[in-house]
């Protein structure tokens, strides 16, 4: 009789954990709220120019393909967790499966599992709250996620043909992170901004690329050469712009403080990419209540102790991925596998 594990959320963290558990002779129920699995990653694109920039999207997509055909992983889409009782070794959970068609009824399913991995991921900060940055008002203002989707669908960003101006694009960092409410760094934005900057520059050499930043986060294995490459070809400006407005020529005017001279400067761009911060999913609180686990001060799932990455205050429940705090793809995969290890450790004999 195989030990059973419930993984909540079929994003890349949940998938990594599920694959690893299934490998070690566990049976995994992979719960997904949406109709398709993969989460955010399935809309991301490879950001390599001629060189790889270590975004790891390819590794994540490979895992998605693997999980779809694994015999020991049962994927439950359109499903949410309704109730959960019990303790490590015998959790009784109730799953609610939403119907695919309106004429079908809501299905409920009861499962008995040995352990639970909540891996519900993150939500993007709603940059519409920053009205002054013009998101949702002007067509040229996109979030990093919009850019990922556009690049995946079209392979390139289409700049308007204009003989009077050179095409230009600006990235604005820290939209919704490192502020009073979200007093943390979202960890991924500086890196994807620099990767996209290099990719766009590679695809359209005439485009000038600017990045507005507070502090560039260039830590991480294999990332130092990417940053060095950026320093030569991309313009870095310290400080976050105050406002974005459309000028009569339908281009986007960015007003920012010129720190050195202490005055206001204006620059004109075709596209503005806002690096929207990572915030906890709205459902995090609700799930935490059902499972009885603690949240940290920002609303992510909390862990106990210092030298510990996955354990929650409930035995048998281990968090995985960015529902525990912002993480990039390699870290998310590693964190998912680490959660699986914690479970294997308890039940392996």
């Amino acid at each position: 009789m195989k030990k059973k594990v419930l993984v909540i959320g079929a994003g890349i963290a949940g998938i990594s954990a599920a694959l690893e558990l299934a490998k070690c002779d566990f049976y995994v129920y992979l719960l997904e709220k949406n109709a398709s699995i993969g989460g955010w990653v399935s809309s991301f694109t490879c950001k390599a120019h001629d060189k790889c920039t270590k975004c790891s999207v390819c590794v994540a997509k490979r895992k998605i393909r693997e999980v779809l055909v694994h015999p020991d992983i049962s994927i439950l889409t359109n499903s949410t967790l309704k109730q959960c009782h019990g303790e490590i070794g015998h959790f009784d959970v109730e799953i609610e499966q939403n119907p695919m068609h309106t004429d079908q009824e809501l299905q409920e399913q009861k499962l008995a599992v040995h352990a639970i991995i909540p891996a519900i991921g993150f939500e993007l900060f709603d940059v519409k709250q920053y009205g002054r940055l013009g998101y949702g008002r002007y067509r040229g203002v996109l979030t990093g996620f919009d850019l990922e989707k556009t690049m995946l669908e079209n392979g390139n960003l289409h700049f308007p043909v204009n003989n009077t101006h050179a095409p230009s694009i600006a990235f604005i960092q820290c939209a919704g992170s490192r502020n009073d409410n979200n007093n943390y760094c979202s960890r991924v934005c500086c890196k994807y901004a620099m990767r996209f900057a290099l990719l766009i520059k590679h695809l359209n050499p005439a485009v000038s690329v600017t990045i507005f930043f507070i502090d560039i986060q260039n830590a991480g294995k294999g990332f130092a050469p990417v940053y060095e490459e950026c320093v030569g070809s991309i313009q870095f400006i310290r400080g976050i712009p105050v406002e974005v407005i459309e000028n009569p020529g339908k281009r986007l005017e960015v007003r920012y403080e010129n720190i050195a001279q202490g005055n206001v400067k204006r620059d004109v761009f075709d596209f503005i990419i806002l690096s929207a911060g990572i915030v906890p999913r709205p459902g995090t609180w609700d799930l935490a209540r059902k499972l009885g686990i603690n949240l940290d001060e920002y609303g992510f799932f909390g862990t106990t102790g210092t030298f510990n990455s996955n354990d929650t205050n409930v035995k048998g429940i281990f968090t995985a991925g960015s529902c525990q705090g912002p993480k990039d793809i390699p870290d998310t995969i590693a964190h998912g596998i680490a959660a699986a290890e914690r479970i294997v450790e308890v039940f392996a004999k």
């Binding site: 690893e20 070690c24 030298f307 990455s309 590693a334 596998i337 294997v344």
Partner: peptide, 16 residues
Amino acid sequence: MRTNVDVLNAALNSYE
């Protein structure tokens, strides 16, 4: 934190 994640990954990989 990341080091701890590495530790668990290496342990699971050798076990597998």
